[in-house]
Amino acid sequence: MRTTPTRTSRLVAVTAAFLSAAILALAAPASAKADEPVRAVFTDADSEPLSGDDLAANSARGDIQLHWAADPPGASPMFRLVGRLDGELVDDRIVYYEGPQQRSFISGLEDGTHEFVVMARLADTDPWGPESEPIVFTVLHHSLRQTFILLGIGAFLFIAIVFVVVREAIFAENPFADEDEAADPAPADRAAEKGGEA
């Protein structure tokens, strides 16, 4: 027996086709995104991504506090922070950190322009994702001239303090010497003699 589709069943079929198409359309970019490697970006302390001039920093002490995050946010990847001194080979890059944390304090850097990049991956078996935009960190330590001037002033002040305090401790007279000898022990000392240590 031949049957013809009813109006209702045609509507169901069209709806199902539309929904399938919609699901496929939505799923396609997602699966494509899942294939994309997770990225890492440098941020400020409030997790706002840094860009442009904010990616440049300088110091006279050679230390820097770095913050980073995953892009897109929400993923929990492992991160790798690497740095190198400008002009050195790529192979000479130093790995400063590998792990899940999202900030690090780096210190003890020499004069020069240092570049830091951070990358991420979701699993240990994945390759590292693309490098972030670098933070360009310029270290210019205080001049040795300025340093030795302050060092000299400090040494002089220290010697002066020691000289005065030690000299006075040895030679300064007790302005109340006669009084103290003549008088009875002070009330506190009497209490000490009676009551022992506090």
């Binding site: 006279a60 130093i94 003890g108 205080h142 001049s143 340093t147 302050l150 400090g154 040494a155």
Partner: peptide
């Protein structure tokens, strides 16, 4: 330290030399 943070070992680390007497005087 020599490899990754060389200045931490340097006897001529300017900020550290400045801190030497600064910290002493601060303590005094």
């Amino acid at each position: 330290l020599e490899e990754s943070r060389p200045m931490l070992l340097s006897a001529l680390f300017p900020a550290a030399l400045m801190a030497l007497f600064n910290n002493m005087l601060f303590g005094i």
